[in-house]
Design a protein around this nucleic acid. Structure first.
Lengths: 95, 95
DNA sequence: CATTCATTTAGATATTTGTCTAAATATCTG
DNA sequence: CAGATATTTAGACAAATATCTAAATGAATG
């Protein structure tokens, strides 16, 4: 799957957009995120994988915990993709 | 499904993003679009429906043809949704 | 080192999605 | 009106997705 499609698919799920929103205020551990979303940790882990595949989040192990944070450098790329798609007079880029 | 989720799902498919790109230059009939995408007209019609459900495109019958065009007023809403999701210091809107 | 806590992986299942073929609907033209 | 053209709808099917339970892995601590 193309990197761009991976990003779009990651964003298409409301839980994953919720995770992004939850991380906007700062990093959180998998457990902290799990407390905010009403599903099993296994299911959430699947969503984490989708976000990692899109490089929208980064992870870092801190002792017993795994800390998730937004990958801000990729957010700029995403913004560019969106601008390309929606710009009224954008150039007709290949995907 | 929430209007916002309808939009995200519509955008998650590469064919549908291709249709949006194809319409950026101006309106096209269903047949003209069909010539650009390698699938049956029936399949394309399904994609048109997804885009219409998200109000990303409008249709207008012109004689024997149906003309598709971008719904530019909704594009602004989409931009706002994206800005909300990605803004570094955005407010924590409910979805 | 054995136990506990945190997280992920494996495997199963129901639902959704994208595509197709075939048939239906709508409009134009002779 | 009858036939031709344009588009959509209906129904079927394979592949992808989101979720779950159960088991496995990794790290900290007594």
């Amino acid at each position: 799957m193309s990197p761009q499609q991976t990003i779009w698919k990651a964003l298409a799920d409301p839980t994953r957009r919720g995770i992004i929103r939850a991380l906007k205020g700062g990093s959180k551990t998998a457990g902290e995120l799990a407390d905010e979303f009403p599903m099993t940790r296994a299911s959430l882990s699947h969503h984490f994988n989708a976000l990692k595949a899109a490089e929208l989040v980064r992870t870092e192990r801190r002792g017993q915990h795994i800390v998730y944070s937004l990958n801000t450098s990729v957010l700029d790329d995403v913004a560019a993709i969106l601008m390309d798609l929606f710009a009224r007079n954008g150039k007709d880029d290949k995907e």
